[in-house]
């Protein structure tokens, strides 16, 4: 009896979690122009609209480009830092951890306004570089956390063995450690990419019309009017999210297998 209630409650909550997404995606394939069911028919016209518009396609490219660049910067900085944090101890570790994790805790509106005022005078507002830097800062903690987690499965004795064989610390890291934690690093990069792909508030404050990203374009579209083209954009973002989720799941499973083997 109690078990049945638990099942009912759990499944209902799961449905609540999925319902909005399940509701919006089919609408984007509607042949009509209303935002409710039943659909008058299926068509790809809103996706066509998406790809032929002056705004959506550049926004898609901006999102992918800025996300990729931010992920590269965040991963390049975050991976060695995670390794260093793993090796470090004491006050250094806790202070550095505090700073590295801060972007996860500080409300993003504060970051957005602070960056607007800091980037304005040095000409980084309304540039791709400015947005990449901001998104890299927001994504870096995810890289650090993910890589640190995969280092848990790495045996530091191997590093000492490498040192005994005459490898310097850097060489040991690149030759011995990095190959083993590679899935974790890749997962961190995906997290950083997803962070950038999601981010809208900083983009609203510091980007110009040439840096419009998909979420930002959606946000202004929602303020203006919800069209089915917006639903199509949402459909595209959902598809991206599913891909990213699958990628991370695969990478993490691989990482676990490696750590296990």
């Amino acid at each position: 009896m109690g078990r049945a209630i638990l099942w009912a409650a759990g499944v209902l909550v799961a449905i609540f979690l999925l319902a909005p997404i399940v509701a919006i995606v089919p609408l984007s394939f509607s042949a009509g122009s209303f935002l409710f069911y039943p659909l008058p028919g299926l068509s790809l016209r809103w996706y066509q609209d998406f790809f032929s518009s002056d705004f959506w396609l550049p926004a898609l490219w901006n999102s992918l480009g800025i996300g990729a660049a931010a992920a590269v910067v965040a991963t390049a900085l975050g991976t060695p830092a995670a390794f260093g944090l793993w090796r470090a101890g004491g006050a250094l570790r806790s202070v550095a951890m505090g700073i590295v994790l801060a972007p996860m805790v500080v409300p993003v509106i504060v970051v957005a306004v602070a960056l607007l005022l800091a980037f304005g005078p040095i000409g980084l507002v309304a540039t791709h570089a400015g947005l990449v830097i901001a998104h890299a800062a927001l994504g870096a903690p995810f890289v650090v956390v993910t890589v640190l987690a995969s280092l848990e499965g790495f045996d530091p004795v191997q590093l000492r063995a490498a040192a005994a064989c005459g490898a310097g610390p850097l060489r040991a890291f690149f030759r011995v450690c990095l190959p083993q934690i590679a899935p974790g690093v890749a997962a961190g990069a995906v997290f950083a990419f997803a962070t950038s792909l999601d981010e809208v508030v900083v983009a609203l404050f510091i980007s110009g019309p040439a840096q419009r990203t998909l979420p930002r374009q959606m946000f202004s579209g929602l303020n203006d009017q919800i069209s089915l083209t917006t639903a199509a954009a949402a459909g595209m973002l959902v598809a991206f999210s599913v891909l990213l989720l699958l990628a991370v799941t695969w990478l993490q499973a691989r990482g676990r297998r490696r750590a296990g083997g």
């Binding site: 799961a14 449905i15 979690l17 999925l18 319902a19 909005p20 997404i21 509701a23 919006i24 609408l27 209303f34 935002l35 409710f36 069911y37 997803a194 792909l197 999601d198 809208v200 979420p215 959606m218 946000f219 929602l222 919800i226 917006t230 639903a231 949402a234 973002l237 959902v238 999210s241 599913v242 990213l244 989720l245 799941t249």
Partner: peptide
């Protein structure tokens, strides 16, 4: 999976989805 999927989907998309559901001529 039902928890992870929405977790990965953009906040703006999920907010938009609620607008589509809740607006006066919505779902």
């Amino acid at each position: 999976g039902a928890v992870m999927l929405p977790f990965w989907i953009s906040l703006v998309v999920r907010t938009a989805a609620w607008m589509v559901l809740l607006q006066r001529e919505g779902v």
